[in-house]
């Protein structure tokens, strides 16, 4: 299966500091790709390059097999790439529907088309089998952490997106809510979306991902099928960049 999103040989520097070295990364539809790496490995930078927030210095960016230029977040959104950041970017004083359509409201003339938005939001939440909210007209401030995460993900899915990138979606959640969100992540992939999951939690990674991409000091140490590796190997890849045959040799991709 061809990857929906593929990066080849990405380099990115901030001034004198090179953050990404010759990174290859591919994301397949219908799969959850876990992006792992220690703090400072370059996960966030890579995601921001994908999302068009940072311009890459060199390298190729393929979407649906075609090479594309991503210069701004708008370009990425137009392709169908949505990023759910860790801080979720929800407005507490607005309700679920209002948050999901923020900045892209449907309107008739100058009047907001609340009914259509409410229907679309309800349909999206239903398609994600979200049954944890009492009313989609309740304010986000009254939602739990897991519910907020759900709303943020539903917001990303609403726009017929093809790639959804989740930045540590379970970092602040309890056990039950983590399970809910992971279930939702799995469901997104099962619906044919390509999902990128950034996580520090190996249990989460092994619970839902199909592939694991491990970054080590700005280099892609390995991109492997989850079923082919063990916990210990992934931890080694994260901490030292190699594990047995896998990973970097002398700091260069094997």
């Amino acid at each position: 299966m061809t990857p929906v999103l593929e990066l080849r040989g990405i380099d990115k520097s901030f001034g004198p500091v090179q953050v990404l070295h010759d990174v290859d990364f591919s994301v397949h539809p219908g799969e959850v790709t876990a992006l792992v790496g220690d703090n400072g490995a370059g996960k966030s930078t890579l995601v921001k390059c994908i999302g068009g927030i940072h311009a890459v210095d060199s390298g190729e960016y393929f979407f649906d097999g075609k090479t594309v230029q991503i210069n701004s977040p708008r370009d990425a959104a137009e392709l169908g790439i949505e990023i759910v950041y860790q801080d979720l970017a929800l407005c507490d004083n607005l309700d679920i529907v209002q948050n999901m359509f923020l900045g892209r409201e449907h309107r008739r003339g100058i009047v907001l088309d609340e009914d259509t938005m409410e229907e679309m939001a309800a349909r999206t939440l239903e398609s994600l089998s979200v049954r944890t909210v009492k009313s989609i007209r309740q304010h986000v401030s009254s939602l739990s952490g897991g519910q907020r995460q759900t709303v943020a993900i539903a917001k990303a899915v609403l726009w017929n997106s093809k790639v959804v990138i989740l930045d540590e979606p379970t970092a602040a959640l309890g056990v039950a809510q983590t399970a809910q969100v992971l279930e939702l992540v799995r469901r997104l992939a099962d619906q044919g979306l390509a999902v990128v999951l950034i996580s520090h939690n190996m249990n989460d990674v092994f619970a839902v991902s199909d592939r694991i991409a491990a970054l080590y000091l700005g280099r892609m140490a390995a991109q492997v099928r989850t079923s082919d590796v063990t916990h210990a190997q992934v931890v080694e890849l994260i901490t030292s960049g190699r594990s047995g045959d896998l990973g970097l040799t002398n700091g260069v991709s094997a």
Partner: peptide
């Protein structure tokens, strides 16, 4: 709607 959004969370807006 955008006025409320900016007041609630300018970064999100």
């Amino acid at each position: 709607r955008h006025l409320y959004a900016v007041g609630g969370n300018a970064e999100a807006a």
